[in-house]
């Protein structure tokens, strides 16, 4: 058997191998981007939500609004999402990256230790209803702020606990509630890709309702699809088929996994016509966000 394979003469790379190389390169670039943002801007998502909390608290108290650094951060995140889709969620947010890492590790353990062919995912039936839970989370938090009772939740924020850990500080004893919630969330992250982002994240709820410029969103030419093919939806961390579930498009976290799994190459981002290499487009967005983040004061080192 070895002989026969060694006898085949070296050929130029096939189309499939080229695609494989392209996907691999883009995946590595994506992991690199997530790591850089995880280390430099681990609190970005909490800061953006602090902007919403500040606005709602001020409105609830009848005070006039001021443009403080929380509000600037919120506006920066929303503007970036408007222009490029939820790139922030997919590549910048430290909680999203934590979710990807936990699920990646869990899938690896499931494969190596428990010999499961396919890692765990939530069944379809509970999936869609759970995606609505984040709107309830957002509504409750916003309401508490507006009523001036947000302090009731002191010690219960898993984000607070997480941000303490990223600063290498142990959360104090008053944070038992937050620690328990964080542990539960990490368990959830191990069972479903993007568990927190799509089911619970109040900032994700805001992002998923944002308009995204149509020419920077992922689109598919579904008329060319193979009959009954669900490859994109099955591989999508938030379970959507681009362009088909039109009211769920906001769930897309811009990971672009669907582009690589589509057997017909139907799925693409219109902006990729301008920038041919997909990994270059990722790096450009990352650099743009990084510069914005430094100006907003989100970077821990600059």
């Amino acid at each position: 058997m070895n002989d026969s394979s060694s006898q085949t003469p070296p050929k130029p790379l096939s189309a499939a191998a080229l695609k494989e190389r392209k996907t691999r390169r883009k995946m590595l670039v994506g992991v690199g981007i997530r790591l850089v943002f995880f280390v430099t801007m681990p609190a970005a998502f909490a800061t953006g939500f602090s902007g919403i909390k500040y606005l709602m608290t001020a409105i609830g108290a009848g005070e006039s609004l001021s443009m403080n650094s929380f509000v600037w951060t919120l506006m920066g995140l929303l503007a970036f999402t408007f222009l490029f889709g939820r790139f922030f969620c997919g590549y910048v947010c430290a909680f999203g990256t934590l979710g990807d890492a936990v699920y990646g590790l869990s899938a690896w353990i499931q494969k190596k230790v428990f010999h499961r062919k396919k890692p765990l995912v939530f069944p379809d039936k509970v999936y869609r209803p759970l995606q609505k839970v984040k709107y309830v989370v957002l509504a409750v938090l916003v309401l508490l702020c507006a009523l001036g009772s947000y302090s009731l939740l002191t010690g219960w924020s898993p984000w607070n606990v997480f941000s303490r850990l990223t600063a290498f500080q142990w959360p104090s004893a008053g944070y038992i509630g937050g620690i328990v919630l964080l542990v539960l969330i990490v368990i959830g992250m191990a069972c479903q890709p993007r568990f927190f982002c799509q089911f619970l994240c109040p900032m994700g709820a805001v992002f998923s309702l944002m308009p995204v410029l149509p020419f920077s969103a992922v689109t598919s030419r579904s008329e060319n699809c193979l009959k009954g093919c669900q490859a994109c939806r099955k591989n999508c961390p938030v379970g959507i088929k681009p362009g088909e579930d039109k009211f769920l498009d906001g769930e897309c976290v811009a990971c672009e996994k669907c582009m690589h799994v589509c057997p017909k190459g139907n799925i693409h981002r219109p902006t990729h016509k301008i920038i041919r290499h997909e990994w270059v487009s990722l790096v450009l967005k990352a650099v743009l966000f990084f510069v914005m983040g430094v100006f907003l004061g989100l970077c821990r080192f600059l």
């Binding site: 308009p211 995204v212 149509p214 362009g243 906001g250």
Partner: peptide, 13 residues
């Protein structure tokens, strides 16, 4: 994102 959805969301924003 479809233009119709984009329009509705933009109007809401």
């Amino acid at each position: 994102m479809k233009y119709s959805v984009f329009g509705v969301r933009l109007a809401a924003l």
